[in-house]
Design a binder for these strands. Structure first.
Lengths: 154, 154
DNA sequence: TATTGTTATACTCTATAACTATA
DNA sequence: TATAGTTATAGAGTATAACAATA
């Protein structure tokens, strides 16, 4: 290969990432990974993942939804939703009931234990949010949300 | 189960996601997925993934780095970096050379073909960025970057 | 025929430990 | 003993197609 630089005996210690940190997708991913790491750590004690929390929260606010409604609302493939929901059901946090009108479907509900779990998780989420609001301020959070919604529009 | 709502014959059509869309991590993830989808689509023609682009870009700016330097700088496990780099090497975009001083290590370089690839990818990245800057404005991008960096600080 | 949910499968990304060859 | 890189493996997360039961 011609015109390629010589092999250095002492490689650069300062690595130039060039435009990468300035790319919105790159900065977005970095911040998101950091927030998810904190989220995971806080939820580890309850053994709940972010996606599981979103399912529990949706059932709390919308009892009786069908599986396909919950999975569609949260962007989860219905084929992946079933096994994930099984785990929550085995832990007694949720339950499936056959609605009278349609014997193909399941209506989904939180159990009392699930409702108690959501209450605990909500407090963890508040602490999680507060940690990061402390870094950008309440107005920063509003501004950030506005920008992110505009980015994701359409 | 006591105190659980009745099964509805007609499930809610409007699904309440409650506080989820207001959570920073949720909005962050949604925006990031949208941007990565656009990124992926633009790069599909060149068959390059975001992580591969970041490797090519780092080698363009820092020729001769060792594998562990590149992988550490980009947050990639060294055990995963090797096979990924193999693919780029098989396509003639990069090459490994043995440095004189250390016969365990490899110094990594772009080939001429790799440099040409980076030039094409840079134009795709510019168009990608422009699409989203159009939604939030140049000042919006600066503000977003500031907020994301503050979120990810430390 | 269409819909609800399940099963099987596969692909990507990521993470860890054990191994080799050099240092 | 430590380091550079490789190999094997495993776990999430995500995606598609085919299927059974019911509508």
């Amino acid at each position: 290969m011609a015109d390629l630089p010589e092999i250095l005996d002492e490689p650069a210690t300062e690595i130039d990432l060039g435009p990468l940190p300035m790319l919105m997708g790159y900065a977005l991913r970095r911040a998101q990974l950091m927030m998810f790491e904190d989220f995971h750590a806080r939820f580890a004690g309850e053994d709940i993942r972010p996606a599981q929390y979103s399912v529990l929260k949706v059932l709390e606010l919308n009892p009786g939804l069908r599986q396909n409604q919950v999975s569609a609302a949260l962007g989860i493939q219905r084929s992946n939703f079933g096994p994930m929901f099984d785990l929550l059901e085995q832990r007694g946090l949720v339950e499936r009931r056959r609605p009278d009108g349609d014997r193909r479907a399941f209506a989904l509900f939180l159990t009392e234990g699930g409702a108690a779990m959501v209450a605990r998780l909500d407090r963890l989420v508040e602490a999680h949010e507060a940690k990061f609001v402390a870094r950008i301020g309440g107005d920063g959070k509003v501004k950030l949300r506005t920008l992110l919604f505009q980015l994701a529009q359409e």
